[in-house]
Design a protein around this nucleic acid. Structure first.
Lengths: 166, 166
DNA sequence: CAACATGCATGCATCATGCATCTAGTTGTA
DNA sequence: TACAACTAGATGCATGATGCATGCATGTTG
């Protein structure tokens, strides 16, 4: 386990740090990640749902019904922001809001049938784009990318969770 | 190692398309990409430069000096938006603006020493974070991730370029 | 019951963005 | 040369997303 002191040592100057076993590839991966981030931002996704809406619906798909506060936590957004989004999505008929039987202050938010359909449509479009960009890959490579990416995301997520806690 | 696909298999319905040779992994990769996009958005990067500023400086680092219009093209932003960003960065001393000798209307924008230093610092911090999240990986896997990611980004970029053209 | 905490909504200010417009400089053409 | 059309960049304006502070209703604890 690398300590914070080691981390600070890395920040110093020498970018080709001997203690980093992967240094040659790290910069390259960093570049790739930034490209991906940029591509995601510029709605190359090709669907009609704005990113925030898409994210909310996607989160709801995986989680059944959630409170506004929980949604805000997932999205790293302020409760007020999510509250307004939920109001919008409710008006658009993409979600249902029902009072929480356990807690009179809270409400359960869940996908409506319409919302589920819209989300599936958006997912299908994104999937199609992704599939096209993987044309010509053989199965083993796709599989490998999948595995490595999943592992990597897991690592990043636990690391950031760890850092947030501190 | 459980991939995101394994999770999604439990959640959603049968979303796989028979005509897609890679269908099982595509959804998983899609999820991973969205996670990455989200992580990038929420400034987990750990630096003090806001995403827009970082992106502009990074672009300038790779390209020497650029016009405002060219920058706007790179970033997929309106010229006016970039113009304002450039004004800000100029005031902050992160860039230099010099009149274009070829064209009196245009200006060349390039990194100042200060800007270069700030960018390097931000890059170093991101690199450190990335390095920590790759702890415990062996070289071959990092290498593999790098190669696949680079190939993938290349594919996505040429695909989107192709789509924009049409 | 009183005091405090929590979930959500709303008012307000801020900021990024795009469009329309403006100015200054450039290019093409009669 | 003179004049029109065009282009680079800046600015006014409206819009939309966001966070903070606040308010209100409800819940929890002493």
């Amino acid at each position: 386990m690398q300590t914070v002191r080691d981390l600070e040592r890395n920040l110093g100057g020498d970018t080709a740090d001997r203690s980093d076993p992967h240094s040659p590839a790290v910069d390259s991966v960093l570049d790739a990640l930034m490209s991906i981030g940029r591509l995601m931002r510029h709605r190359v996704q090709g669907d009609h749902l704005d990113p925030g809406t898409f994210w909310l619906l996607k989160t709801l798909l995986g989680s059944g019904s959630l409170r506004v506060t929980e949604l805000a936590g997932c999205a790293n957004l302020d409760t007020s922001t999510v509250s307004r989004h939920v109001t919008q999505l409710d008006r658009a008929g993409l979600i249902h809001r029902t009072p929480d039987p356990q807690d009179g202050r809270a409400q359960r938010v869940e996908l409506s049938e319409h919302g589920r359909a819209e989300l599936q449509s958006a997912l299908t479009q994104r999937r199609a784009l992704l599939t096209r960009s993987l044309e010509g890959w053989d199965d083993a490579d796709v599989e490998q990318l999948d595995v490595l990416l999943a592992r990597f995301v897991g690592n990043i997520e636990s690391l950031t969770a760890e850092l947030e806690q501190a």
